[in-house]
């Protein structure tokens, strides 16, 4: 457990003196190896105003092995898979590029830099990369719309989260029907598609 000292130090740095637009929390105090990060969409980009959840997993060999970082929030971006996995393509994290002296704060900053400046030459989503290169306004429009709908879904979920717990639902299928019911009652201000989508994605 030689790495604990290093991780504790890095965590302290990231929480007391966090990089711009980055909030780090530890979801489980006893586990130093899983971090939750909220990334604020950088100003003057299509992601402005959005909040993106990242999950940072530190391998037991950390810092000799690179951490893995995934987007928990769906994002419309050439270098992040547009699915429930949210994998990122970041050169810094490749095993032949990773150096044990690299700090997580600089890794997180480079993730944020990726939002400021996508790398369409090295895409994970080829279609989005093409759009980014060839039709920038359409890309901005789509990325913004994505941010908005994700925020909305989150908002609704937060709002009804208590209700879900109140109903004592655990089973995926139960929850799914529960949300369909919520929608059917007609009180929620979202389209059914979004309720369904949020249900599928986040579980």
């Amino acid at each position: 457990m030689t790495s604990n000292k290093r991780i504790t130090k890095e965590l302290a740095e990231c929480t007391t003196n966090p990089p711009v637009g980055i909030t780090v929390t530890l979801p489980n105090d006893s586990d130093l190896h899983t971090w939750h990060v909220i990334l604020d969409g950088p100003e003057d980009t299509a992601y402005a105003g959005g909040k993106f959840g990242l999950v940072v997993k530190l391998p037991t060999e950390y810092p000799f092995k690179a951490p893995t970082i995934t987007f928990a929030t769906r994002i419309y971006h050439p270098n992040v898979t547009n699915d429930s996995l949210g994998n990122i393509c970041l050169g810094l994290l490749k095993s032949d590029k990773w150096k044990p002296s690299t700090r997580l704060s600089s890794v997180l900053e480079s993730v944020r830099a990726l939002l400021e400046e996508p790398q369409p030459e090295d895409p994970l989503e080829a279609r989005i990369a093409d759009e980014y290169r060839n039709d920038r306004s359409e890309f901005d429009k789509n990325a913004k719309a994505y941010v908005q709908s994700e925020m909305k879904v989150r908002e609704i979920q937060m709002k009804w989260n208590g209700l879900e717990q109140y109903a004592g639902l655990q089973d995926q299928e139960e929850k799914r029907w529960f949300w369909i019911m919520v929608w059917a009652i007609g009180k929620a201000k979202v389209r059914p598609k979004e309720v369904m989508a949020s249900d599928d994605e986040d579980q």
Binding site: T2, S3, K5, R6, K9, P63, P100, S101
Partner: peptide, 9 residues
């Protein structure tokens, strides 16, 4: 006065 930058020892 050396502190290792990797393990912080």
């Amino acid at each position: 006065g050396f502190a290792c930058d990797i393990c912080c020892e």
